[in-house]
């Protein structure tokens, strides 16, 4: 190794000129200034990991249709799910009254569990499919059947028969596994902000299609508890004040229509059921523009008085409708 330095370039051994001074100091000044400037720019900033402020974007106020119809609650029975739905729907004014050309329709069934239609833990797939078909026939631009399932979403939508029936009817299937969410302020006293499945946020018309079911905590799972499936997040904590939460969800997601499926009613062991001995065939479908009336009617099928289901009274206080279903109902 050479330890006496030889000139490595022609310019190395010479007077230090202006160019050499630039070469000597330029990089140092540039580097020093870049470091100091970068540090000054970043100094005291809150940092990129600051938690985003809570969303204050509200949901659409509701999805109701203003005009008065012939009935607020119609119940049809005895003719199978498809025909029951058609007849009850006709009695509240027909689908054309609610869904028009170009509307994006979201249908929210109760599709929570990996159970067959016979086990009556999920909404009857024929009701869901026929409703989708009718919406599309009325001119809807799209129909999306959407739920946040409790069991694995792919299995649940498959076993319930809802995925196949909805797709055959021309509807899309959306769940927490294949769909984005949007953070929205649900506006309730207890709810705060939640991630909401996007097809619901974007819907022009929202149709709630619950099944009438027994539930261990509130006594029944009906329409308002069904909105647990619209949100994504730590839903288990919502059970601590389930009556108030259900009513507030009912206010946040005030739908165009409530289609209450009582084709088969799960009378015990809810909300999951399983054993066929728990299932009571009733062959009924209720259609309501008044979600509270639908709720009270559903409760009556389980022989529960509205007092037993305190969320119905809260929903009434919130102005969502009337629990006096008997004076509203039209049986067809």
């Amino acid at each position: 190794m050479s330890i006496t330095r030889e000139p490595t370039a022609p310019g190395d051994y010479r007077r230090i000129g202006r160019r050499d001074l630039l070469r000597l100091w330029g990089p140092a000044v540039l580097a020093g200034a870049a470091i100091a400037g970068g540090g000054a720019t970043l100094h005291g900033r809150p940092g990129r990991h600051q938690q985003p402020a809570e969303s204050t974007t509200p949901l659409p106020p509701d999805w109701r249709v203003a005009a008065e119809g012939p009935a607020k609650l119609a119940v049809a029975g005895g003719s199978g799910p498809v025909e029951n739905l058609r007849r009850a729907l006709a009695a509240v004014g027909g689908i054309e009254r609610f869904v028009g050309r170009g509307h994006r329709v979201a249908i929210k069934p109760n599709c929570a569990w990996d159970r067959t239609p016979e086990q009556a833990a999920n909404t009857n797939p024929e009701v869901v499919a026929e409703l989708a078909r009718l919406c599309l026939a009325a001119g809807a631009a799209s129909v999306t059947v959407v739920d946040n399932t409790c069991h694995d979403p792919v299995r649940t939508f498959a076993r319930s028969g809802i995925a196949a029936a909805a797709r055959a009817a021309g509807a899309a299937v959306a769940h927490q596994g294949n769909t984005a969410t949007e953070r929205r302020d649900l506006g309730g006293l207890t709810l705060g902000t939640w991630e909401v499945l996007r097809p619901i946020v974007e819907a022009d018309r929202l149709i709630n299609v619950p099944i009438v079911k027994h539930h261990s905590l509130p006594g029944a799972t009906l329409g308002m508890k069904n909105w647990f499936g619209a949100v994504v997040g730590s839903r288990p904590s919502l059970h601590q004040q389930i009556a108030r939460v259900s009513a507030e969800l009912g206010a946040a997601f005030n739908p165009t229509l409530t289609v209450m499926d009582a084709t088969r009613v799960l009378a015990g062991g809810g909300p999951t059921g399983g054993s066929l001995s728990l299932v009571k065939p009733m062959d009924l479908v209720g259609v309501a523009t008044d979600p509270v009336a639908a709720e009270a009617w559903g409760a009556s099928l389980l022989e529960l008085s509205p007092d037993r289901l305190s969320h119905i009274a809260i929903a009434e206080q919130l102005g969502l409708g009337s629990a006096d279903w008997r004076s509203l109902v039209e049986e067809v």
Partner: peptide, 8 residues
């Protein structure tokens, strides 16, 4: 600066 985009 790299991890949190700040020099606190």
């Amino acid at each position: 600066a790299l991890a949190d985009w700040t020099v606190p």
